[in-house]
Design a protein around this nucleic acid. Structure first.
Lengths: 248, 248
DNA sequence: GGAGCCAACTTGTTCAGACAAGTCGACCCC
DNA sequence: GGGGTCGACTTGTCTGAACAAGTTGGCTCC
């Protein structure tokens, strides 16, 4: 359906790589070769391979053929931003338990992350997420004032808040920033996740923003150790990952 | 210096953004505008802004001007792959203590990550890294057989192994993959980092590879909780970050 | 005043061609 | 065989042009 030429080519190449048609370390056909096969210009083919390079599937060096770096597919933006979407892709059953959903003034940090004036009213939601019945993650989300009403209008048992927001209100996340670190479970975390206080947790804090850069939500997700791993690939040309000190 | 046109333009734009010439949320000049100013074609300008977009500095939507998303600079590939390079950029003093450096057969996991035959001899190095005198991270590295000799030839007090490898032997890392999760400190971790056993640690495992995709090293770095945070930014177009279950 | 429409503007996609710069294997010479 | 040179090949950079698709603000009309 993608009538966009370079995505068509990228999809076909990706499928071929995933199907094992090209082994890891193998060379891809040359750009002019691909251009001929697809009756496209070399510029279009370059855009296609650039897409795959950004996904970390292939690498390149001037003068030498492009090489296949790995076979696995990268997750989509949606799967990263939505726990429900991610778990579904894995074929695991997700359930969630609402613990609280209240309006309150934003804390200093929340106000800054959401680019709001101090003490602006936000919607604070705490949820426990279970994977196949196992308590896996505690999610504490602060929704910006301008989306609070839309979120409150959603039913309690909504599968994915971000999905519903997109469909019902046209509020779509385009950008995200993620801070990842480790910490010991507090007493509330410990009780909810059924682990001992002080047990290691993997924390992912992230902010989602619209296409215009307006922050939508700021969340603090805490995973039981061993339940999830984050993966990032990078190259000398693009480095999306960054290491920071302390509280980021 | 950079005789490469699009990088010149990207550098100038990045500098302007970092200098605060454009506020967060502000619009950048249009592409044709920039093309005229720099007497370049629009294609070249697009390559420049694509660079900044990949760095997460600016966003875009078809039909609307590009907007500034953030001001901070992203770290370089070297700063991410080398603990020493990273800490230096922060102005903190790095010291490291060698704990062991032995040749031994690769474990099953090491052999797979390094794309070696099972039981191939690798060079295993354990180092304790201190930041301003504070024990911060335990690093366990397995160097592939074909780089082992070059690593052994380096002096014990080398500041950065990867830096030295590049300079001395021409072995340069081009690609990396990182797995991030949390776990409790084992007894050795606890002793070295001067924390209690079971205390939360942030673990970053990563493999570095050459331009041809050949794995160089596989390391397991464990940071004391609170000492570092990883940061990743993404967008609907490029998602370098991925969430996985369990042991990745 | 409000709703809807339109026109100017801006980014997205594609093309064809050109030259620079780096890689790699074949070939030659010693 | 070893080593160096060279040429074919391949990716990197850049141009100029054209049309598609989406945004935005202003204008008209009710």
């Amino acid at each position: 359906m993608g009538t966009i030429r370079y995505l068509e080519i990228a999809d076909a190449l990706r499928a071929a790589i995933l199907a094992g048609e090209y082994a890891v370390g193998a060379q891809l056909p040359s750009e002019s070769d691909l251009a001929t096969r697809w009756s496209a210009s070399r510029g279009t083919v370059r855009q296609a391979v650039a897409t795959l390079a950004a996904e970390g599937l292939i690498g390149s060096r001037q003068g030498a053929r492009r090489i296949v770096l790995r076979h696995e597919r990268r997750h989509s933006f949606g799967e990263l931003n939505s726990f429900a979407q991610w778990a579904e892709g894995l074929g695991q059953e997700v359930t969630s338990r609402f613990l609280s959903r209240v309006r309150r003034p934003a804390t200093a940090e929340e106000a800054e992350r959401l680019a709001l004036a101090p003490d602006t009213g936000i919607l604070a939601v705490v949820r426990l997420r279970l994977l196949d019945g196992e308590p896996t993650m505690v999610e504490r989300t602060a929704y910006a004032d301008w989306v609070a009403a839309a979120v409150e209008a959603l039913p309690d048992d909504v599968r994915s808040v971000m999905d519903s927001l997109a469909n019902e209100s046209g509020i779509v996340a385009h950008y995200g920033e993620h801070l990842i670190d480790a910490l010991g479970a507090g007493s509330e975390d410990a009780r909810l996740l059924e682990i001992r206080r002080g047990s290691p947790l993997l924390r992912q804090r992230h902010v989602s923003a619209t296409a215009t850069g307006r922050p939508i939500e700021w969340t603090d997700d805490r995973y039981r150790a061993g339940s999830v791993t984050f993966s990032v690939s990078n190259s000398a040309v693009t480095t999306p990952l960054e290491r920071r000190t302390g509280e980021g």
